[in-house]
Design a protein around this nucleic acid. Structure first.
Lengths: 130, 130
DNA sequence: GCACTCACTTACTTTTTGGAAGTAGCTTGC
DNA sequence: GCAAGCTACTTCCAAAAAGTAAGTGAGTGC
């Protein structure tokens, strides 16, 4: 039985699940540079939909990782900033960034996974494909 | 204009996208402990579907993060193990684990995000809800 | 009053995931 | 020698999540 994973795992799974939601890492990464407004986040990320950004921000706020701060202008603006819990995440993001710098080839568009369904380049299964 | 994000960002986005696929972090975490077979991975993760595990493994293999190694038994077994690129990921996983240990409350089931849709505890929007 | 911005939300479509059952190769029991 | 089991996947279908686009409400500018 391999439940040696269990004790730390509940926490780890939670964290992995957090980062396992699309865009979470990117949002956190941007917020590491300082507070950011909704529109600014949309703009900087570029390809995220506002629907999902809104959802992610609410989720992260609920997790206590960031907080929404409303500046009643008059030009009313809301700002998202990391809490202490969120700030503590910088090491993870930092290591991820370092890994990416060293190992990610810019030419490979990360779409490899999608193609993978059809393209098994290495060690084809012994089973006959017909 | 905030395209100061662009240069590093392509790589970072790729990495974030990788980790942003559900279960990737957990799979990598388990593989950090050593090579693992398909069934063993299923068992250790517990809640992943075999369909998705298979998909993730192929994707990670295509990305060069892990490799499939077939032992022609006779009881034929395949084993997944990290490549150098995959091993290099341990720092990310490690920091994620540390963060989780320090900041994740075991009692909070990470489902906070789901509930968040309905529950805005902090700073309700000024717009009337009717 | 009309156009425009910001920060979201809503409605609808497409993609991903989950769950369960099926398949293929090989061994073991009878 | 064949049903039964094991391992490693794949296939099918329903449910959940993400993408797309248009709408909403408050406020400003003219």
């Amino acid at each position: 039985m391999h439940d040696d994973l269990s004790p730390l795992c509940t926490r780890f799974l939670t964290a992995a699940d957090l980062l396992g939601r699309r865009w979470t890492g990117v949002i956190l990464r941007i917020l590491m540079d300082g507070p950011c407004r909704f529109g600014e986040l949309t703009e900087r990320i570029g390809t995220i939909s506002e629907r999902v950004l809104s959802e992610r921000l609410k989720g992260l706020e609920a997790e206590g990782i960031l907080e929404r701060h409303v500046d009643p202008g008059p030009p009313i603006r809301s700002e998202y900033r990391l809490t202490e819990k969120g700030q503590a995440f910088w090491k993870v993001i930092d290591e991820l960034g370092k890994w990416a710098e060293r190992w990610v080839d810019v030419k490979a568009p990360a779409q490899a996974q999608k193609g993978a369904k059809a393209t098994r380049a290495v060690a084809p299964r012994k089973r006959k494909s017909a």
